[in-house]
Amino acid sequence: MEPEMRLLLEGLRAKGIPTECFTAKRLERRQLPLTSDTLVAGYVPTVLGALKQLGIEPPPTNDYPPSLTPFLHRRLWMSTVRQLTSHLHDVASPPVFAKPQGRRKRFTGQVFQSASDLLFLERASQGTPLICSEVVRWLSEYRVFIVHGRPVGTRHYAGDVTVPLDEARVHEALRLLESSGEATAGYSVDFGVLSTGETALVEWNDGFSLGAYGLEPEHYTALTVARWCELTGLAQPPPRST
């Protein structure tokens, strides 16, 4: 079982909420009795599959909310595998960071420097949409967890742990996000410190199938439940879970 699922299991049981573990195949075969007040947690395809069975449209991806554009500190643009391939064949072109747009992750986001890196695109069609950005150097990266507009924890996950975030910039970013209407009931925002010393947005993450990085079970459970209630239109936390 993934660490996140262990945290959630612990958090739900601490609240006295009945839980049941299941395999993805059971869900795919529609062998689980689902209702909107049954929390389903797991990998992204599992949660989206449960929403589909409930007749709920999956939420759109929003890795870079417009309200947080001032915190990017790098140029971002939309592209395709075809365009990236053409770019890499030009030896004079600078390196580019690219990742698939949306939730169908044909490859992991990474820096592409030369035609030899095309190996990582083998599973992606030429028309696959991409999000590209200028290459920057991150000194450290952190995930900030939010439940109903309130930060409930920050966890370091990459780089030098002694390089801290500019907390004032983080709070300003969260204030703008919440006031824009782009925030969800439960989510996280990844921030990092660039080699320039600036605190910048890495990406926004929806509040389901979310990497916990050791967040306390109580907070991880509250975040997951808050987002599920929002997705399914429930006013109160689900009384039971799967």
Rank of each mutant, 00 (worst) to 15 (best):
L174H: 05
V161A: 15
A185T: 06
T199D: 10
S188V: 04
L130A: 05
V152K: 00
A168D: 13
R143Y: 07
A168Y: 01
G149C: 14
S195L: 03
H148A: 11
E167F: 01
L130I: 03
T199C: 09
T154A: 15
A185I: 03
L194C: 09
L201D: 05
V135A: 13
E172G: 00
H156D: 10
R143T: 05
L201F: 07
S140W: 06
R175V: 01
T199H: 10
S188I: 03
A173H: 07
D206W: 01
F191L: 13
S133P: 00
T196R: 13
R175D: 13
A168W: 02
W138R: 04
V135F: 13
V152M: 00
L130V: 03
V161F: 01
L130S: 04
F145Y: 15
D160I: 03
S133D: 09
E178S: 13
L130C: 05
S195G: 07
V135H: 12
V193H: 08
S133G: 11
S133F: 05
G181Q: 03
H171W: 09
V170I: 13
D190L: 02
Y187L: 05
L194T: 07
R155K: 15
F191G: 12
H156G: 09
G207M: 05
T184C: 13
W138Q: 02
R137Q: 13
G159T: 04
T199K: 10
I146P: 09
G186W: 01
F145V: 04
P164E: 11
S179Q: 15
P151Y: 10
L176G: 04
R155A: 04
V161W: 01
V147R: 06
D160K: 07
D166P: 00
V144D: 05
D206H: 08
F145S: 05
